Simulated assay, not measured.
Amino acid sequence: MSAVIELGPGVRAGFTQRYDGGVSAEPFDTLNLGMGVPDDRDAVVENRRIAAARLGFGHGRVVWMNQVHSADVAIAEEPGVVGRVDGVVTTRTDLVLGTLAADCLPILAADPAARVIGAAHSGRLGTAHGVASALVAEMVRNGAEVGRITVALGPSICGRCYEVPHHLQEEVTRSTPEAASRTREGTPGVDLCAGVTAQLQRAGIGHVAVDERCTLESPDLFSHRRDSKTGRFAGYVWWA
């Protein structure tokens, strides 16, 4: 596992890696946590149990999203799948929030004083639509204070690797110019981490920790851009 970090007193966040145990066969080897890929369902269930046990919580506490590249945010009141959204917030301290990725940017957030935690998934479209800002706004509606929210950004494809056509780059940079990048080949690109960091700063978030690993460059992480048919790693935020 990636190192577990503290998002404040009592709140933990962590990201899984591709080969942290797991039972999935190629090309989803080994710790695929995504149900939305054609992996064996029983293998994914076992992988989710393994990941949760290693991080120190019960897999039955986890809230998952059916991620659709939106800026919609749901409120979680119970474990399971919360719906077709890309952000989730809860005030329940017995729930664990999970977000899946394989190049997109996983976002984990907490205001421990208000007992509010959140998670989101921000790909190119989610970044263009501002899912990170929507997550912060929903946390505030549920009692969080912007100045107290701490955010952890997980691994994602970097701006030097994420090549897109110019018109798709413009879709993101119209709202978030900081997301514009040039790839190693000098072509248009999108820097998800830079874009989301800028969105969070504009929302008033002052505490952002970044895992700078590039999913395409790191064989320890799943990458859809690199491998096409592949699994998903997860980011989790929970109360210890």
Rank of each mutant, 00 (worst) to 15 (best):
M1E: 09
R184N: 12
T183N: 09
V146T: 07
A52D: 09
A110M: 05
T230F: 07
Y162E: 10
M65Y: 10
A198R: 02
I50C: 02
S122Q: 04
P9S: 15
V210E: 06
L105I: 01
R48I: 01
P188A: 04
S175T: 05
R84N: 11
E6R: 07
E212C: 11
G80D: 02
V62R: 01
F28G: 02
D40E: 15
D94T: 04
S133F: 03
I149W: 08
L135V: 01
L55Y: 10
S122M: 07
F57S: 11
C193K: 14
N66R: 11
D20N: 09
Y236A: 12
L125I: 10
R115F: 05
N142T: 00
F15A: 07
C161I: 00
V140C: 01
V89A: 06
V210A: 05
V116N: 13
P27Y: 10
A194V: 00
C161F: 06
R49Y: 07
V190G: 06
R49H: 08
G56R: 06
Q17E: 15
E78F: 08
S181M: 03
L100M: 11
L100F: 03
S2R: 09
A234N: 06
T187E: 15
I205F: 12
T230R: 03
A137L: 04
V44E: 05
A25K: 10
E178P: 06
G118V: 02
G98S: 11
A240R: 09
L200I: 00
P79L: 12
E170T: 10
F222V: 01
F57G: 10
T150P: 01
S2A: 15
A179V: 00
V116S: 11
V68K: 15
D86G: 02
D39Y: 05
Q67L: 06
A74I: 00
V210G: 03
D42E: 15
Q17G: 13
R54N: 08
L200M: 07
V151M: 09
V81E: 15
E212Y: 09
A76E: 12
W239Q: 04
V62K: 01
E26V: 01
A113I: 07
R225K: 02
K229A: 14
N47G: 03
R48D: 02
L135M: 04
V11G: 07
N66W: 14
G36K: 14
R41P: 02
A43R: 05
D94N: 12
E217A: 15
L31N: 03
V81H: 14
L33H: 07
T176Y: 11
M1T: 05
L168I: 09
S228W: 14
D94V: 00
C214D: 12
R61S: 14
R148M: 09
G10N: 06
W64M: 06
D191W: 07
L125W: 14
V23L: 15
L125E: 14
Q67V: 02
I157E: 05
E212W: 13
A240L: 11
R174M: 14
G186M: 13
I50Q: 10
